[in-house]
Simulated scan of single mutants.
Amino acid sequence: MATADGSNAEIDTRLFITVSGPPGCGATTLCKRLADAMGCPYVSGGDIFRELADDRDMSLNQLTAEADGSDEIDRALDRRLQQIAEKWGMANKPFILESRLAGWLAGERADLRIWLDAPEDVRLERIDDRGETDAEMRVREVSEAGRYQSYYEIDIGNQTFYDLQINTARWSKHGVFSLVRTAIEEYDPEVDEGAFSTPTLEP
């Protein structure tokens, strides 16, 4: 049942949506709420990365350090995410893919590509309960950006091809959800004049 503000109302859509952003941007919170409203699954690159760390009995910081020394881990993760994007891109069903490279990996398959961000001090406060220190978060961001550039010649700071960019520090969690909800519900493919193109990645 929907609440007075409509926050629990279902979203009738078949869009394939990607959500990206740095640690602490609010992507997980948004994706869980969207998946519930859309009645669809979502896959998080962060969860898969954490599973890789658990499988190897390593901390996130240790796995990040290992990934710095070899492209095997990153490419395996990206191949898996790309396979998921290919599967859902052809399914004509609602789906959400969340990772730093989700918009790139999904490419033309994605119907709506979203980038979330917030000032660093806000993001640091949000990750307090994740077992990752401020320094570790900064190291991870720099490390990932360097690897993306090295492997794929991707500048993670280039957000020009995203359809929607939101500073999640400016609105409440519900406010961010409402903004994205409106974008989804107001999307009409018949008046869509075209998304920005993205290069094809080959993990």
Rank of each mutant, 00 (worst) to 15 (best):
S70L: 12
S70T: 15
S70E: 01
D71Y: 08
E72D: 09
E72H: 12
E72M: 12
E72K: 12
I73C: 08
I73R: 08
I73L: 13
I73A: 09
D74W: 15
R75W: 00
R75E: 11
R75C: 09
A76H: 14
A76R: 03
A76K: 07
L77Q: 13
L77E: 10
L77R: 04
R79W: 13
R79Q: 12
R79V: 06
R79D: 10
R79G: 01
R80C: 07
L81C: 12
L81K: 00
Q82N: 03
Q82C: 09
Q83N: 10
Q83C: 04
Q83E: 15
I84L: 01
I84A: 00
I84P: 00
I84W: 01
I84F: 00
I84C: 04
A85E: 07
A85K: 03
A85C: 05
E86M: 06
E86D: 15
E86H: 14
K87M: 14
K87N: 14
K87T: 15
W88D: 05
W88N: 15
G89D: 03
G89M: 05
G89H: 01
G89R: 09
M90G: 09
M90I: 14
M90E: 15
M90S: 11
A91M: 05
A91V: 02
N92K: 15
N92T: 04
K93Y: 00
K93I: 07
K93E: 02
P94T: 07
P94I: 01
F95L: 00
F95R: 11
F95D: 08
F95W: 04
I96V: 13
I96G: 13
L97H: 12
E98Q: 04
E98M: 02
S99H: 08
S99C: 11
S99P: 07
R100T: 11
R100Q: 09
R100H: 06
R100N: 08
L101Y: 06
A102P: 02
A102M: 06
G103P: 11
G103H: 01
G103T: 13
W104G: 00
W104A: 02
W104D: 02
L105Y: 12
L105H: 06
L105M: 06
